[in-house]
Design a binder for these strands. Structure first.
Lengths: 214, 214
DNA sequence: CATAAAACTGTGCAGTTGGACAGTTTTATC
DNA sequence: GATAAAACTGTCCAACTGCACAGTTTTATG
């Protein structure tokens, strides 16, 4: 008889009158958040659903209840992080009020770098699974390629506008920048806000300097 | 009684009169080689000693016999790959007969890039374990840092010699180049020899162009 | 050819994992 | 307050992993 369940009460069963729907949404979110952190630091196979459950202070069976299986959870995490990044970008682009082409390029570059530096989880996860070539997640390739293509398109645009040295191959240049970004901000994320912003500035400077027409 | 061992004969027990010492060295080498490939593609935790044993066509207990435990095997693989890279570099630098500073820089860069592109396993493994932060392998940080420092020193030298733009931060520039290298040649290694060499040339060109004093 | 060391192998074990499932608690609704 | 659905939980299971170990085969040497 496996019926001793409930001897340990829920995390906060009755507490606030949140309504059960909202509470379910909250636990879903909490699971997604902790899963994102663990997937980003240990990789898909590097952490168990039990690890995630413990971090989110939830029974591991509850993860199964909300997300079905581990792979679905992973996909949900990716969606969650993408929507998060999308919202952050929405906010950032509103601040862009510069006008000279070089300044627009600098702003755009800075925004992209800053967003990644502040919340590197998505990049880390994509990079990791791509590196490990988990054939389960063919989508990763697609997502990563989409991001790349958008960036390459942007560089080409800047080349036509005369802001970027027209002699360099846009794809190579993009890999250069993406690689540097990875090394500096994704591999070991910078926690301190001030230090990170300083690094973002320095990095943006280097990109602009290297890329500008002489 | 666990004594049914030997029902499956050795890989090639008597075959050539190689001498048992040499045969032991051969199996050691075979294990190291296959372990390198698997560690590089799946990571330390991503492959089991049984996987490695199967790839090397050896019983998994034999790995234990030769290397003790998995962690020691991993360290031996790193040593093995480092010595391999060292020997390859020895050969390459002998070919360097250019004289102008720019050409020396180009040659040196090209050699380093080519070596990594041809045998990306070491870089992949270091990058992977560093990314996953396997605290077991604190050495990784040291090794990676050593490689980085050597490269940074080289860039500084080139700056003093006037070959590299003195305005750029050597550490940032190094990360840039290392990152691009990673993206282009380590993340998904290029198998075809000709294609790879073409890419190495193109990449070298980009580095030289971006880095040169205007 | 006896023999002992070296090289190698199968099997057992405890721990962890993803998943399955029956069970319990909570909450909205009548 | 009864009740049914939703939210959540403990526990069992098969598969896999690193390691331990007793056993077997091979080979060099007297």
């Amino acid at each position: 008889m496996p019926a001793t369940a409930g001897s340990i009460p829920n995390a906060s069963p009755v507490d606030d009158g949140e309504g059960r729907q909202q509470r379910a949404i909250d636990t879903r979110r909490s699971i997604l958040n902790h899963a994102a952190l663990l997937f980003a630091s240990s990789g898909y196979d590097g952490c168990s659903t039990r690890d995630i459950a413990a971090a989110a202070k939830v029974s591991h069976a509850n993860i199964r209840y909300h997300f079905g299986d581990k792979e679905t959870l992973w996909r949900s995490v990716i969606e969650f992080l993408i929507s998060e990044e999308y919202e952050a970008n929405e906010l950032l682009t509103q601040l862009d009020t510069s006008d000279t082409p070089t300044e627009i390029f600098r702003q755009h570059t800075r925004n992209a770098i800053s967003a990644v530096a502040k919340r590197p989880q998505l990049q880390r996860i994509l990079h990791l699974e791509r590196l490990l070539g988990n054939s389960r997640f063919a989508d990763v390739e697609t997502i990563a390629r989409d991001i790349d293509e958008e960036r390459v398109g942007h560089i080409e645009m800047m080349q036509r506008a005369g802001t970027v040295n027209p002699d360099v191959d846009p794809a190579f240049l993009n890999e250069f920048i993406a690689g540097g970004l990875l090394q500096r901000f994704v591999l070991e994320p910078i926690e301190d806000d001030d230090e990170r912003e300083r690094m973002v500035d320095a990095f943006t400077d280097l990109v602009v300097r290297l890329v500008q027409t002489p």
